[in-house]
Write a protein that binds this DNA or RNA. Structure first.
Length: 280
DNA sequence: CTCGGCCTGCTC
DNA sequence: GAGCAGGCCGAG
């Protein structure tokens, strides 16, 4: 579920409440979440460390601690919840439950929970070697200054793969996921199955603008809560109210009224309006 | 590049 | 009970 706007929403909440707090205790219920990293090293590395900030790169969260870094990826169904002594939200939500794989006791009095039913997410210690290896291949952040129409055009040029697949490639648009790829292509008026190399220069400019607009707006709305996304304070996002094609198969396109279609493109469920996004 | 695998839960 | 789900990785 979580794509750039959801991860950024989580980051913003966490960066507002975590800095200055110290990790007192780590409860690791599912060592599998560490993807092979040693669980003792993980816990020892974090206990007594103080959190300085929470950053994001693509769909990764990076916790900067004293003398330590911690990495988190939410996968498909990962959620992070924050509870503090003055406003214990998670107690009435029955946390921790059987899908809560990691709990941090914090000082001053607070708790951080990681839950992930599908277990595609991961946590781990982050050192500079791993950080470089993970991030060196990612393209520039789509909401940052380095993501230009020229660069996007160069990434699509000559490619036979469907433009949708290229948008989902984290080396091209880091943080992009299935929902926002469909929404961006609809706003740009581009058929998702069109080969990357067949996207015209004018369409690349529209696509570049629509990718940024969709992601920016979705961040502003606190992400998309279609089924289960909640921020660390258990709040829903509202971008699901702005979706024009994603999850709207058979319903009228808000631009032209044509029923929205759904098919598989790049092995992913793909939604588009055949009128607004015509075949070449 | 495409496919399958990783997991569980929800809908049809 | 089958099929599907917002992600990512590695094999072929």
């Amino acid at each position: 579920m979580p794509e750039l706007p959801e991860v950024e929403t989580v980051r913003r909440v966490l960066d507002g409440v975590l800095p200055g707090r110290r990790i007192q205790r780590v409860y690791l219920n599912r060592p599998k979440m560490l993807r092979g990293q040693d669980s003792h090293l993980f816990c020892e590395g974090l206990v007594k460390r103080r959190i300085r900030s929470v950053e994001r790169r693509a769909k990764f969260l990076i916790f900067r601690l004293d003398k330590q870094g911690m990495l988190a990826h939410l996968g498909m169904s990962g959620q992070i919840f924050f509870d503090s002594g003055d406003s214990p939200l998670s107690t009435d939500k029955d946390l921790p439950d059987r899908h809560t794989h990691l709990v941090f006791d914090l000082d001053p009095d607070a708790r951080l929970y990681f839950r992930d039913p599908r277990m595609f997410g991961r946590f781990g210690l982050l050192d500079s070697v791993l950080e470089r290896a993970l991030f060196e291949r990612l393209g520039p952040e789509p909401l940052g200054p380095g993501f230009t129409a020229r660069r996007l055009g160069a990434a699509l040029a000559g490619r036979k793969a469907p433009v949708k697949a290229l948008l989902l490639d984290q080396r091209i648009v880091p943080g992009m996921g299935n929902i926002y790829a469909d929404e961006s292509l609809h706003r740009a008026g581009i058929d998702p199955s069109r080969a990357g190399g067949n996207v015209s220069e004018a369409q690349v400019r529209r696509l570049h603008a629509s990718v940024r607009a969709v992601l920016r707006e979705a961040v502003h709305k606190g992400g998309t809560s279609l089924s289960d996304f909640l921020d660390p304070r258990h709040r829903k996002g509202s971008f699901q109210l702005e979706l024009r094609v994603y999850g709207r198969e058979g319903q009228a396109c808000p631009e032209c009224g044509t029923p929205v279609r759904k098919a598989t493109v790049a092995q992913r469920g793909t939604h588009w309006c055949p009128t607004c996004q015509p075949k070449p």
